[in-house]
């Protein structure tokens, strides 16, 4: 098991390193950071001054190695755009993203698990089709569109929730629904398939012969077994939420890491984008690793 974990960790670090190189070179190739920092109508002198000040006139390779060696000394760099250490930006913004990620996964669980159970208990029925319809719709609708529709309905037509901001937990309700909805199909289908498999298993037949029926049978015997693969998928989905909150945070003006990523990309804030890509990748890989370990723990064949 330890060898398995060590192998996965090496993969995680290799992916992280590759990503950092690709991100750095792509960012520097595609955009002129001096121009982006200065703005559209900046004067030539202002752009050139920024170029010299930040060292953008030096080669990309030298700058990459400087950045990389800084990371090993615990220096994540200074944000050009915010004039702050990147680490303090991450610390400031992380709580909003963590709140949003946890609340959106809760939304996913609250919608997808009951839908999956209903669909599994009534296969090929109208209920099954409705559940599938909801899941497909949730997957097909883009986040920004769903966000604006939710604002129109629940903040303007029926003014229950605030339009934007992140001052209270109440502000997170609509964005959590938007972000959580996109994970509903995957979890719901897995729940449905898993439960269908379990319901047809021998031990359920045995339980049934012992007098267990209906919801009691589902909750006490079937669900516990069907939920195991769902939990590992939810772990992956949680990783997705951390990195996938860019649009949702921007639409709802939540001051989290996703919005920071967008602002940093538009502002050509290379040190912040670099670290964010790295952090998002590591979080995503970490949750994937967690899912792998969970699966390997449950199924020893995967450790081979």
């Amino acid at each position: 098991m330890l060898r398995f974990i060590a192998g996965r960790l090496i993969v995680v670090l290799s992916v992280g390193l590759t990503l950092s190189i690709v991100t750095f070179f792509l960012l520097n190739y595609v955009i002129d950071p001096a121009q982006a920092i200065a703005g559209e109508d900046a004067l030539f002198e202002e752009i050139e001054q920024i170029r010299e000040q930040y060292g953008f006139d030096r080669s990309i390779t030298i700058r990459y190695f400087e950045w990389f060696s800084g990371i090993f000394q615990g220096d994540l760099g200074i944000s050009y755009y915010w004039n702050k250490p990147v680490i303090s930006l991450l610390i400031d913004r992380a709580p909003e993203t963590i709140t949003l990620a946890l609340m959106s996964v809760s939304v996913t669980i609250l919608i997808s698990i009951p839908l999956g159970i209903l669909a599994a208990l009534n296969p090929n029925s109208l209920i099954d089709r409705i559940a599938l319809g909801i899941a497909v719709t949730a997957q097909a609708v883009p986040n920004f569109w769903l966000g604006l529709i939710m604002i129109l309905i629940f903040a303007l037509a029926i003014p229950i929730f605030p339009v934007s901001g992140d001052k209270t937990l109440f502000h997170f309700v609509l964005p959590s629904i938007v972000l959580g909805a996109s994970s509903v199909p995957a979890v719901m289908r897995l729940m449905r398939t898993g439960l269908l498999d379990v319901i047809n298993a021998d031990f359920i037949r045995t339980a049934r012969s012992s007098g267990f029926y209906g919801w009691r049978l589902v909750f006490n015997h079937a669900l516990r077994n069907a939920l195991l693969p769902v939990v590992s998928v939810l772990a992956v989905q949680l990783g997705n939420k951390f990195g996938g909150s860019v649009i949702t945070e921007s639409v709802f003006a939540i001051n989290g890491l996703g919005r920071l990523a967008l602002e940093s990309i538009l502002g050509a804030d290379i040190p912040t984008v670099q670290i964010l890509v790295f952090v998002f990748a590591i979080i995503f890989l970490f949750f994937n690793l967690l899912a792998d370990i969970l699966n390997a723990y449950l199924d020893p064949r995967l450790r081979l």
């Binding site: 920004f144 604006l148 604002i151 903040a155 303007l156 339009v163 934007s164 921007s250 639409v251 967008l262």
Partner: peptide, 16 residues
């Protein structure tokens, strides 16, 4: 600071 113009419009309509 509200990055999305659609959200700004909604805030304007709601009095925010």
């Amino acid at each position: 600071s509200i990055p999305d113009m659609g959200t700004q419009q909604a805030e304007l309509m709601s009095g925010g």
